[in-house]
Design a protein around this nucleic acid. Structure first.
Lengths: 192, 192
DNA sequence: CTCTCTTGTCTAGCAGTGCTAGAATCGAGT
DNA sequence: ACTCGATTCTAGCACTGCTAGACAAGAGAG
């Protein structure tokens, strides 16, 4: 019995290693450098073992995305907890979101730009994704404004943050004024 | 002399054909289906011909992106011209933008998600891109609000639209409420 | 009208990708 | 110590973007 348990533990450990290595490699050299061969070499196994853990590269990206969603939710919650007043909380949330996106570009890409084969806004949406949205919702409901559905407001707020994160990182927006953009956004969107 | 001119004309025509075919193929089956072989087959030439017009696949994507930027600028200008009052213009702009993104997903991807090798927000930004931003700026300056730099406001507004377009298309936001999201966004961002 | 020589195009191939069938090896249980 | 099932690897497929070098077409000279 304990032999099987040990094997299972080792398997789980190796799975974590794969995800962590993929993430690390992507963060260092970009996702285009994350090939099955390179990944296999880094974890010191042959390529086929990757496929005994994941259906394919998509699923590995998806695993990184889920990890990122959980981290981001935690980061957002930590930032908002330290803020006082609903408006401050919205500002802290926005900054935390953009901060995470900026400091983990590969993970952010896994979540939103690449195809990780994850379902969204549907029944079978993975828990970490739902929870990340919930983390936004918690702090934004208070500033949605009267008569505005909090979920809808959160979606709009999130989309705006996502747009800023994406365009800034892609070099579409000059990074210099990033702070003032967030301020303006929060100032306009968040109602008393 | 006229022989060279004819050849140049034919070359230019074929270049347009390549871009149009790439766009068509991407719109029909997604960009992952746009391979150099398939593209070459569709234009009834061999692959190397593509490389006598473009440096590589990136540049072809870039050409589609530029085309899209010009079209989008035109669409936005047409929509805002028909609107009365600054606020209405902002709303019309937002709807036109999202409408274009929704109806030309592959072109939108070429502009923002894929690497077309285009420079942004820099000295050597291609003219169509600058002009597309200018088209937004023209109609949004009036609703930026007192003391707010119009360029900065346009960037924020644009980012929000981009976020909505991207997340909606990626299935991250339920498409049903799309209209209400735009209304909310414009309502909050655009100041009298 | 023929020949040459540039220009343009194609065939064939490289190195890389994600993924997999079947051989080889390891190690747990008898 | 040995067997036999589970695990891992080697080798290979079909595809990708891209390119060197063979080939053909057609303009200009005689």
């Amino acid at each position: 019995m304990s032999v099987q348990e040990r094997k299972q533990r080792e398997r789980a450990g190796r799975e974590r290693l794969i995800v962590a290595t993929a993430r690390e490699l992507a963060e260092q050299q970009g996702w285009e450098a994350v090939t099955t061969r390179r990944l296999a070499e880094r974890i010191e196994y042959s390529q086929p073992v990757l496929y005994s853990h994941f259906r394919g590269k998509r699923e590995i990206i998806g695993a990184v995305a889920l990890q990122g969603a959980a981290e981001m939710a935690a980061a957002v919650r930590a930032a908002t907890a330290a803020a006082t007043g609903p408006r401050d909380r919205a500002g802290a949330l926005a900054r935390a979101y953009l901060h995470y996106a900026e400091n983990n570009p590969a993970v952010y890409d896994a979540m939103f730009h690449l195809d990780g084969g994850l379902a969204f806004a549907e029944e079978d949406t993975p828990e970490p994704l739902k929870d990340a949205f919930a983390a936004l919702l918690e702090s934004l409901t208070a500033v949605a404004g009267a008569g505005v559905h909090p979920g809808l407001f959160t979606e709009v707020f999130w989309a705006a943050l996502h747009g800023l994160a994406t365009l800034t990182r892609a070099g579409r927006l000059p990074p210099a004024e990033a702070g003032r953009r967030v301020d303006l956004l929060v100032d306009r969107l968040a109602v008393v």
